[in-house]
């Protein structure tokens, strides 16, 4: 049996100390800040739950929350479906596999800022190459700058394009790890393609899929640069997401109390969402392997 004593504790201590110094203490400070009225040049004053109450009554917060939940679900599940489809094709074997793989992974190597600016120019309704091509085909305007729905759709497209490689790599690796003998046995037993996918592939990759979902949910919740650089939350704050709402409170309005409270609300919501998947993972993934 492995022992856990002082030497092991000392070896873990540096990493733990870093976590305490850079995550735990600032988090506690921000939690305290969320109960204060604080700004540049002012001493922080304790105001109880006033910041949380202010957020509760702010229509802009609810709109940002609704947009965030909508967008991250589209992004996370869009990425997952595309990853499943692509990985299923890849495991069958495709020509120029290395080249196609590099093309799929490429967006992950591009800076988010560069990627968003690039998309913005390509879809500029006056000079953008894609916008002009769509117009030449006689398709209706994709008015992402002035139509909030179009704006959020473009945010989803860019985000999926940028982060697809993360989910794809996890799902693809998991699919490669499913024993081939299982498929051969199922084939002999007369299972069709869908049955093989449903009863062999899905259970085989479920743990990895849940891990990918947890990470992507948590990371997507912080969605900022796509929205900020594309629409800055406009028009009329209709495409604002929670991270943009937080940024405005903390850094545009210098209202650190409201910013901190928004941050904690984001932590709690994303924690709750992640918890659902962690429980699922525990039940269907890790426990089986324990």
């Amino acid at each position: 049996m492995r022992r856990f004593g002082l030497p092991q504790l000392l070896m873990l201590a540096p990493a733990q100390l870093l976590l305490v110094a850079f995550i735990a203490i600032p988090s506690v400070y921000v939690f305290w800040l969320s109960f204060t009225e604080s700004s540049y040049g002012k001493e922080a004053v304790f105001v109880g739950l006033a910041n949380y109450a202010g957020i509760w009554e702010d229509d802009a917060f609810w709109r940002a929350l609704r947009n965030t939940l909508l967008v991250i679900n589209v992004i996370v599940y869009g990425e997952l479906l595309l990853s499943l489809a692509l990985a299923a094709v890849f495991v069958q074997g495709i020509p120029f596999r290395g080249l196609v793989l590099a093309i799929i992974l490429m967006p992950y190597a591009i800076s988010e800022v560069v990627a968003v600016v690039m998309w913005k120019y390509m879809l500029d309704p006056n000079i953008g190459s894609i916008a002009r091509a769509l117009a030449a085909l006689g398709l209706p305007d994709f008015a992402w700058a002035t139509n909030p729905t179009h704006g959020l759709v473009l945010v989803c497209i860019i985000s999926i394009w940028l982060h697809l490689p993360f989910t794809f790599i996890i799902v693809y690796a998991a699919m490669l790890a499913v024993p081939k003998e299982l498929y051969e046995a199922a084939k002999i037993d007369g299972a069709n393609g869908w049955q093989r996918f449903r009863h062999i592939t899905v259970p085989g990759i479920l743990g990895a899929v849940l891990v990918a979902l947890i990470f992507r949910y948590i990371l997507s919740f912080r969605l900022f640069s796509e929205v900020w650089l594309l629409t800055a939350g406009g028009p009329a704050r209709q495409t604002e997401v929670l991270a943009v709402y937080l940024y405005k409170q903390a850094f545009t309005y210098a209202n650190f109390g409201m910013g901190a409270a928004t941050g904690w609300i984001m932590v709690v919501i994303s924690g709750l969402v992640a918890a659902v998947y962690v429980v699922l993972l525990q039940r269907k993934g890790f426990r089986r392997d324990a």
Binding site: D124, P125, N126, W144, A145, T146
Partner: peptide, 16 residues
């Protein structure tokens, strides 16, 4: 006015 005016930043305007 340009159709994407609400998403144009100052630098976009100068370039336009």
């Amino acid at each position: 006015m340009p159709r994407n005016i609400t998403a144009m930043k100052q630098n976009d305007m100068i370039t336009a």
